[in-house]
Every structure is written in structure tokens, then in C-alpha cells.
Simulated scan of single mutants.
Amino acid sequence: MTINVQPGARRGKVLLVDDQQANLRLMHQILADEYELFVATGGAQALELCERSAPDLVLLDVVMPGLDGLEVCRRLKQSPDTRGIAVIFVTAGTTPEEENACWEAGGADFVTKPVNPLTLRHRVRAHLQLKQYVDALHALAFVDGLTGIANRRHLNERLEIEWRRCLRSGMPLAALMIDVDFFKRYNDRYGHQAGDDCLKRVAGALSSAMQRAGDLAARYGGEEFLCLLPETDATAARALAERVEQAVRDLAIEHLDSATAPVVTVSVGVAVMCPLQDDAPATLLQRADAALYQAKQLGRGQVVIASDQD
């Protein structure tokens, strides 16, 4: 297995956290040419920025009024959404007890004040390169081997993350459950190699239909796919589902044993929920699956939204 990581291919996102403007200016001068930098002047602001748009790395002052750096790091490591962010403490402490406190809070490294520019650059570069390798391995583990889109494991992880995010924001989360119509008949007539090629082309059509960076198309299993659409209401989810259904039909893959059309088609079940504290993410998938069942009962090759069947 070869992992292709190009150092510097993407400007890493680094959050600088310090209550002293002079320290922020110094670190900014040292790192600005290489990285995309964000600044927070306190612990609460740093947590808010990390939850809103997770950086690749945090340079975190230890001693700050209010939430100190150690507590900020502990909270980052307690949250599933932010625990993967590496933290380098920037500290004036030199005793073993102070160093131990940084490690015990969850820090990945630390640099001492006054900051040595060369040391800071090398520490930041090393941790960002390590993150690139970890991200590359993560991507390999979360990609479906046949179709090249997200696999079930990736879908489950993203569902949990997006569910919590929409729970906090009060925004809706939509899911499209998609099934290739009469796929067993397709395999029986055209062979399994043609079946694999068909699934790859369908996956490509779904992936191309995703319009935003946060939308996810995944292989759910066999000939089933699922699209996860954060912050998407019923109207937008229906429109995207209809585009997906038409995009697959437009592939014009011959399917002479289909009872729906002479080409490959899909049935799509749509569900939309505003997550509540007492709900579980699986409820969204169950509703989408129920809508998919209804689409099949109505003749396949069409879209049904969960509210329609209600």
C-alpha cells in the first residue's frame, strides 16, 4: 500500500490562542508565510472556533484568564468533534510538573517561551505532516473499494457528527436512501462484471449530484446507496433526490429485464429531521428506508419523501 502525501500541498489551518497580542503577533510573523492562520484571544473563543471549523493544529497558551489552556485542551479532547485536533502548548513553564500537566491534558507537544522561531516552525511542520499521513490512512479506511465513494463506516461516522451539529444548530438533516431497481435481474442477464460497472457508474452519478462540500454520497451495501445532506430542508432534499433519479436514468445503461424502464433506474426514499435530544440518528435512516419501500411499492424509478407517505 502506497500513501501519497505531498508536504505543503495544502496550507494547513493553524489556530493561535494567546491573551497577549505581542505573542500572537510574533507567532503570526513566524508562520504566516506557510499556513492559514486564525487567532483567538481566550479559551472560550478558541473552543467556539474549533467547533465551528476545526483547525488542523492549535498553538495554545497555557496561562490565560478565564479558561486556561489546560482546560481548553481537556474540553477539546472530550468532544468527538474536536478530539482529533492536535494541540501544541506554548508555555513559560519549565518544571517537570508543568510539563506533565500539558501531557496529561492531552497535548501533543509543547514549545517554551520565549519562542524560538526555528523550533516553532519545525514543530508545527512535523505535526501537520503527521496529520496528512493520518488523514490519508483514514481516507483509505473509509472508501468503498468498488465504487470509490464513502463506505458504510464513513457514513456512520459522518451521520453521528452531522446529527450532533444539527442538534446544536436546530437545522434539519436529510437522508436519501437509494436502491438500484431490479439489480439482481441486471446481474443475471448481463453478468457480475457488468453489475460492478453499473454500480460504479451509479456511484459516480450520485457523487456528481452532491453540490456542497458537506454533502456525502456513500455506498450503504450491495446495490443500496445513501446521501447525507446537512442543513437541508424537505424542499431542497426532494429537488436533489429528483436530480439523482434523473442523473441515473440519463446514464442510459441498458436494462431489458427491468419492469420499470429499458434502462437502469433507481428508487429514492427521502427523510428530513430536525434532530432532538431524545431522537437517535438511526431514526433518520429508518424513515428514509420506509420511504424507499414506498417508492418500490409504487412502481420504482421514482422519489418518495417520508412526509408524503405519512
Rank of each mutant, 00 (worst) to 15 (best):
N4R: 12
V5S: 10
P7D: 00
G8S: 07
L16G: 07
V17Q: 03
Q20R: 12
L26V: 14
L26N: 00
A32W: 07
V39T: 14
T41G: 13
G43P: 14
G43F: 12
G43C: 11
C50R: 12
R52D: 04
S53C: 10
L57K: 04
L57H: 02
L67A: 02
G69E: 03
K77F: 07
T82P: 15
F89E: 07
G93N: 08
C102Y: 00
A105V: 09
V115W: 02
L118F: 11
L120T: 05
H122T: 14
R125T: 03
Q129C: 05
K131Q: 13
Y133N: 07
Y133K: 09
A136L: 10
A136G: 15
H138S: 13
D144N: 12
E162R: 01
W163G: 13
R165F: 09
I178Q: 09
K184Q: 12
R185M: 02
G191H: 04
R201H: 12
G214L: 08
A218F: 02
E223Y: 06
F225K: 04
D233N: 15
T235E: 13
R238N: 05
A239I: 03
I253A: 06
D257S: 15
V266G: 10
G269K: 11
V270Y: 01
A280F: 03
Q286S: 14
A295F: 11
G299S: 08
